[in-house]
Design a protein around this nucleic acid. Sequence first.
DNA 1: TTGCATGTTCCGGA
DNA 2: GTCCGGAACATGCA
Length: 267
Amino acid sequence: MPELPDVEGFRRVAARAAGGRVRRVEVLDAGVLNGVTADRFRRGVRGRVLGTPRRHGKWLAVPLRTDGRRHRADEPVVAFHFGMTGGLQWCAGGEPRHRFDRVVLATDRGELRFRDMRKLQGIRLLSGDDELDALFAELGPDAAGVARPELGELLHGSRAAVKSRLMDQTVVAGLGNLTVDETLWRARVHPSARSDELSDAAVGGVHQAMRTVLRQSSRAGYVPGRPSWLTGHRDDTRAACPRCGTRLRRTRVAGRTSVWCPNCQQR
DNA sequence: TTGCATGTTCCGGA
DNA sequence: GTCCGGAACATGCA
């Protein structure tokens, strides 16, 4: 599931764990650790206090501290990426483990559990803020905060299909297949339209639609399948456009299944 | 059994 | 050399 809104939900989950000291680190499947051994991960995290979580795009960073009230720049940071199937859970009541729980950070107050079926990206242990900054520097601006003029420059900088441009995390960070389809449908822009050929009005429409989609989805912690949204109709191969009633189309754009309305979103 | 999945990365052709 | 689209990746499910 995880796109920006889902990760925003995971940030709120992690915020519940903030302030807790990690008493025990359980690596149930080291396959989710990226660039760090289970041993080193355990040693790096155990005994430290979980700080205020920070999200950029689809990444979630949890700074750690040992003593004192604040995380210092030279203290480690745990960075989570959830791939397509990952998630974070806060369990304070001794709930039973899930079969896809891969890493558990147990504090005095409860457990933060990283759950992931497919193990595509996983967890990194960064040595400090420099490494975190370097990681985030590879990404474009966060989609929830990008300003319209900047989005215009980013979109106009490429001849690629607007959908693949918006999905490119080094251009704008946080959008995925669902949020992009929803955004383009709202903005009435064809997913295969060339990014550099979008009019200023189209860029403005994309920007506004993106902000609305992300704001409302982030509040829920997922992209809602409301009747008035496109997302609720993705799985129905015969669904009609919620806006005009035309039969929706499903094609592959930028290598992913894309749902769009041939009437509302003309090239 | 087959195809598909809301993630990223890598390869090859234009 | 750069850019872009598609395949590949690992795993479970409909």
